[in-house]
Design a binder for these strands. Structure first.
Length: 777
RNA sequence: UCCGGCGUCGUCUAAUGGCAGGACAGAGGAUUUUGAUUCCUCUUACGAAAGUUCGAAUCUUUCCGCCGGAACCA
């Protein structure tokens, strides 16, 4: 991390939490191995940057390693050019795979070997069904089961022979395929005998013509992870339903190392497209100049646009990692890059649309040298930024300003030049506009000013305020520069949303090329150097620059609050597309009457036998484990009498634990729950303690009474015992008490919590609350 | 319609049964030789309903909405 990068607390997200827990539990010997597995069939984009930051970033944080692996199992799309581009981009982003560069294509022999092994164990077969036949007649649909392929029952010998001949090249593309033998009735379509290895007589950029069969993603990826000892295989949400197959292949091939797949939401950004297919279309359709066109969301494009790796990493960090499907506002990306560039970009001046200004009071032919600092006071350049100090500016009778900075009839709130107005030419003089020259069409060709010699350096006399400060360039010493102004590539917030073709939503103004005038110091600028053109934006010197022909690309414009004022005066922009909330509310739910619950006969029996609320009865009847526990409970001595309490426990708390821990069994029985309910009934424990006892039962299987005794959980329910603790908490939290008195009644909950904690979890919460409320009243 | 996933300010994201917090965006203001930067202030959210609980964004149930899954792509 470079110096000065924003320090933030250690990132926490569900993946990091999971991995930290794995490390703490010493799974995989406490090792963390991740991988970033791009397919070399396109350039990396900022969505990949998220994956890279997660895969490499987490491995680094946990003291593990991250592999860079080219997932090159499809010979028809992949290419060495992409491999090189991927390596360059990952490195540029600041990550290092060390020795760990891998290629799926190096594992082809092992995939083949494991294919034979699957066949031998009856877990895979060679299928002759054409792709179309299988998908139309056999796979079934989302709602209907599939049916088994007629080739499913082939003998091991025949399968082996066929598979070998597939490899030997005896069959045409698509004539045969190796299929997993799983379950044609699975609700997960991925599990309906998915293809594992297909025939493709194609040249592979690395293995050339060695192979004519290639593994498919679902077969290859999990094995690659296993071969490499990957512990945590992190991928995006669309692979969620592939996870079941991932685990199946690992289990069926009996590979020794078992990696685990976890999915997170991919990155979307407004006004951008992020699919490889669309990006490829933009390049091939010449809608942009190439993969590294500065308008592209590719890493190469962003790099050429002048983005820094630090800014991108910071952006990714701010976006976070979660499973919500999300689209980040491009304003956040722009903010992050401005923030970074502000510390990296020396300030210089250039005029994009020159308008000549004649300073009539300044002597003809005179050139005045002015020393101007590169950095405004108060801005500390980042440590690794080269240009510091100041440079020389030339002031002369003729200068250029931007046409946008002059108005003959200025609108309200105008802070720039206009007839009669006094403005400062930055670092130079305060000037006053005296007249305007126009051509025969009435267009302004020249502006006349007089300067105030007492204001040299731009200093206003004490107490005087000028109308504004303008950037400028001497007409005598200006360097011509090509300036490329980039804007978002699409005009639509979500290109291609709905029925729209995203290509019709390209922004025709995404690139504007101007020839401007720059201050002399810019003539020596070198490719990759970054500047802020004062009042205009952040720029980078483009690689198209040649000696004497500087090309400047705008990375991002400066924030412009004047533009906002102007925009506000104009008719309101069309409302943004539907937000999440609007989507949710689009079809307003008909006011739902609490629909009468349909009860199964079992549920009805439970309800009637024990007087349970119908909801509770249904939940218990539905879940076999709960039903068994409940049945056991009612057999116990006090079971009938406490049935309702037990049922509530079962339906509300036990079920929750079962779900969250994905438990199939529970280490206690029904009578234990009766015992727990009895403890509550006789007042030994309160509701606060019940949860804790239940958790302990789940963990140890011990009896409730034993747990209460062990942990000393018997509740404290006397005002005498609790009073002092309440007093103490109140005294220690005067500020919280203040907030309560100011109207925040929720504070009581927090105070109850504190008392509970101080009492070792033993206080009767209800009583505590009463005591607190009495004191606070 | 089946399976899986997801619903918190406009946007992204926190909270691990106890004061709904942060960032961006937006609004207002201060400072300013960049209408920049910086600083201060403010508006705005738990999809709905019912249940469990002293207390629910968090546990349970039902409903609603969104996304992914039927490539011999990855």
């Amino acid at each position: 991390m470079s110096d000065g990068e924003t320090r933030r607390p250690e990132p926490t997200d569900f993946i990091r939490e999971m991995i930290r827990a794995d490390v703490a539990a010493k799974r995989h010997g406490g090792q963390v191995v991740t991988r970033f597995p791009p397919e070399p069939n396109g350039y990396l984009h900022i969505g990949h940057a998220k994956a890279i930051c997660i895969d490499f970033g987490i491995a680094k944080e946990m003291g593990g390693r991250c592999h860079l692996r080219m997932d090159d199992t499809n010979p028809t799309t992949e290419d060495m050019e992409y491999v090189e581009a991927i390596k360059r981009d990952v490195r540029w982003l600041g990550f290092d795979w060390g020795e760990h560069l891998y290629y799926a294509s190096d594992y082809f022999e092992r995939f083949y070997y494991l294919g034979e092994k699957l066949i031998e164990r009856g877990r895979a077969y060679v299928c002759d069904l054409p792709e179309e036949t299988f998908s139309k007649e056999y796979r079934g649909t989302i709602t209907e089961h599939g049916k088994e392929s007629p080739y499913r029952a082939r003998s091991v010998e025949e399968n082996l022979d066929l598979f070998r001949r597939m490899r030997a090249g005896e069959f045409a593309d698509g004539a045969k395929v190796l299929r997993a033998r799983i379950d044609m009735t699975s609700p997960n379509m991925k599990m309906r005998d998915p293809p594992l290895v297909r025939i493709k007589h194609a040249h592979h950029y690395r293995t050339e013509n060695t192979w004519c069969i290639y593994p498919l993603y679902d077969y290859a990826h999990c094995l690659e992870d296993s071969f490499e000892g990957v512990t945590h295989s992190l991928c995006t949400l669309e692979f969620e339903s592939a996870r079941e197959l991932y685990d199946w292949v690992i289990q069926a091939t009996e590979v020794p190392h078992v990696p685990r797949q976890t999915e997170f939401a991919r990155l979307n950004i407004t006004y951008m497209v992020m699919s490889k297919r669309k990006l490829l279309q933009l390049v091939e359709g010449k809608h942009v100049r190439g993969w590294d066109d500065p308008r592209m969301p590719t890493i190469a494009g962003l790099r050429r646009r002048g983005y820094t790796p630090e800014a991108i990493r910071e952006f990714i960090g701010r976006v976070g990692v979660a499973k919500n499907i999300s689209t980040v506002d491009i304003a956040l990306l722009e903010h992050t890059v401005r923030e970074d560039l502000d510390r990296r970009s020396p300030r210089v001046m250039a005029v994009l649309r020159p308008l000549e200004v004649v300073i009539d009071s300044f002597p003809e032919g005179e050139l005045e040298e002015i020393d101007a600092p590169y950095w405004p006071p108060g801005t500390e350049p980042a440590a690794d930024v080269a240009r510091t100090g100041s440079r020389k500016l030339a002031f002369s009778r003729r200068v250029f300003i931007d046409r946008e900075d002059f108005a003959e009839a200025p609108p309200k709130g105008w802070h720039r030049l206009a007839p009669g107005r006094r403005v400062r030419l930055r670092h130079a003089y305060i000037v006053t506009c005296t007249s305007v020259d126009k051509d025969e069409t009435g267009a302004i060709v020249r502006v006349h000013c007089t300067h105030d010699p007492a204001t040299r350096g731009g200093n206003a006399p004490a107490g005087e305020r000028v109308d504004g400060t303008l950037h400028w360039v001497s007409a005598e010493r200006a360097a011509d520069v090509e300036v490329r102004l980039y804007d978002r590539l699409f005009v639509s917030e979500n290109p291609g949303e709905g029925d729209a073709d995203y290509l019709t939503e390209l922004n025709p103004a995404s690139l504007a090329v101007l020839v401007g005038k720059a201050e002399p110091s810019l003539a020596a600028a070198t490719v990759g150097e970054r500047f802020q053109l004062e009042r205009v934006g952040f720029f980078v010197v483009d690689e198209d620059t040649a000696p004497g022909a500087i090309v400047l690309s705008r990375t991002v414009a400066l924030k412009d609050s004047w533009q906002k004022v102007v925009a506000r005066a104009e008719p309101a922009a069309p409302k943004t597309p539907d937000s999440k909330k609007e989507k949710r509310e689009k079809k307003p739910a008909a006011p739902v009457e609490a629909a009468p619950v349909e009860l199964s006969p079992e549920a009805i029996a439970l309800r009637d036998a024990h007087g349970l609320p119908p909801e509770t009865a249904r939940v218990i009847a539905q879940e076999a484990l709960l039903a068994a526990l409940f049945a056991g409970a009612t057999e116990a001595p006090k079971g009938k009498e406490l049935a309702k309490a037990v049922a509530t426990l079962l339906a509300n708390d036990v079920l929750g634990e079962l779900r969250s821990k994905r438990l199939e069994a529970v280490p206690f029985d029904g009578p234990a729950l009766v015992e727990l309910a009895d403890l509550v009934k006789d007042g030994t424990i309160g509701s606060a303690q019940t949860k804790e006892v239940l958790a302990a039962m789940l963990a140890s299987g011990k009896s409730p009474r034993a747990i209460v005794a062990d942990k000393g959980l018997a509740q404290i329910a006397s005002a005498d015992a609790l009073g002092p603790i309440v007093e103490q908490v109140l005294a220690d939290n005067a500020d919280a008490v203040g907030r309560y008195k100011a109207g925040n009644v929720n504070v009581v909950g927090a105070l109850v919590g504190m008392v509970m904690k101080k009492s070792g979890g033993r206080a009767n919460a209800k009583l505590v609350k009463e005591l607190l409320e009495k004191k606070l009243a």
